[in-house]
Design a protein around this nucleic acid. Structure first.
Length: 150
DNA sequence: GCCAACGTTGGC
DNA sequence: GCCAACGTTGGC
C-alpha cells in the first residue's frame, strides 16, 4: 500500500464535505505530474492525507482512502465547469480523477507550520519552497512521522 | 492583496 | 528547441 497527500481548498472541498458525503470523486486535477500520480501510482486501498490549502491555517485536515482507481474526469467536458478543457476529447480524455472515501477527521488541523519544523519531513514536497504540486507521494517513514503528530 | 515560484504557451 | 511572456498556485 502506498501513501499520498492531496490538496484542496476547503472553500471548494473540505474534510467536512467528505465526511458528509462518505465518498467523492477528486475532480479538477489539471497538472500533468499530479495526473500521472493519480494514474500510475494510486491503487484501491492506498491512503491519502487531505490537505487544506489557500486558507487561514493551511495543513492536514483528515485521512481518506482511495476507493476507485483513475477514470476520466467528466468536468473536462462540461463547458460550464471551471475545470472545462476544450482541448480534451472523450476519445482521448486528458484528465483523470480517483474516488476517495472518508476515514477520519483530525481533532485539530496538523498545520503546515508544524510540518515544517520536523526535520524528518524535510524531503516532503509540501514543505519545499514554491511547491505547487497538488497530489504527491508520502513515504512510509513520512507517514509514520505525520501519524505520530496527529 | 502581494508576490515568489512554477508550469504552460507560443513566437521564432 | 529556446525562452520570454503570461497565468496560476498558495503562503504570508
Amino acid at each position: 500500500m502506498r501513501y499520498w497527500l492531496m490538496k484542496s481548498e476547503p472553500d471548494v472541498f473540505s474534510i467536512d464535505d467528505l465526511e458528509r458525503l462518505g465518498t467523492a470523486s477528486w475532480e479538477g486535477v489539471r497538472n500533468y505530474q499530479a495526473r500521472n500520480y493519480l494514474r500510475d501510482g494510486m491503487r484501491v486501498g492506498d491512503q491519502a492525507l487531505l490537505y487544506h490549502s489557500s486558507c487561514p491555517v493551511p495543513g492536514i485536515a483528515g485521512v481518506m482512502d482511495i476507493c476507485r482507481e483513475a477514470w476520466p474526469d467528466p468536468t473536462q467536458f462540461d463547458r460550464r465547469s471551471p475545470y472545462y478543457d476544450e482541448s480534451s476529447s472523450k476519445a482521448a480524455p486528458r484528465w483523470l480523477m480517483v474516488d476517495v472515501r472518508f476515514r477520519n477527521k483530525l481533532p485539530r488541523v496538523l498545520t503546515l507550520e508544524a510540518l515544517k519544523t520536523d526535520k524528518a519531513l524535510a524531503n516532503l514536497a509540501l514543505v519545499k519552497r514554491g511547491n505547487r504540486l497538488s497530489v504527491m507521494p508520502v513515504s512510509t517513514a513520512e507517514w509514520r512521522v505525520i501519524s505520530s503528530m496527529m
